[in-house]
Amino acid sequence: MTNDIVSFSVPDIVFTWLNLLVIFLIVKKFLFKPIKGIIEKRQKEVKDMYLRAEQAEKKAQNLEAQYTELLTKARLEAAEIVKNATEAAQSKADTIVEQAKVKAMELLEKTQAQIQREKDESLREAFNKVSDVVLITASKLIEKEMTMEDHKEIIEKILNDVKTEVR
């Protein structure tokens, strides 16, 4: 038994509609809903990711600016410290050299004075000795013709002349 080629009865139509309803519910519940859900979830995640990346970038930029500033400051500070230290060292060195110079000068003067003194002394001694020797020699040469005082007077005069000349 068959239907006509072109035939439609109420049961056919009702069955077809029921079938359509069933497959519609299946497609909606098992295909569209989960697929849409997963796509939306993914989109949201991607959006979140972009947002997070943007925030991170901003944060990084801020940090970079901060660090650059700190670094610049540190560099300036370091330069100042070095400068100060150099200056301090320079001034100290200058003082030390100055002091050393002064001390050296003093020492030199003292030494020179001492040398002079020693020279004078040794000269005087030498003269004394020479005068003695001359006196003795002279007295030996012209015995008793002159008194000791006369001789001494003459000799001293000569010696003084010599002394002036030596000086």
């Binding site: 009865s9 049961p11 069955f15 077809t16 079938n19 497959i23 098992f30 989960p34």
Partner: peptide
């Protein structure tokens, strides 16, 4: 007496097949 034609039964088979297909794909 509601006559159930080949058309209706075949549609049922198609629906079952589609259901399985959708389940496989998702």
């Amino acid at each position: 007496g509601i006559k159930v034609s080949e058309t209706i039964v075949n549609t049922w088979l198609v629906i079952v097949f589609l259901f399985v297909l959708i389940k496989i794909f998702t």
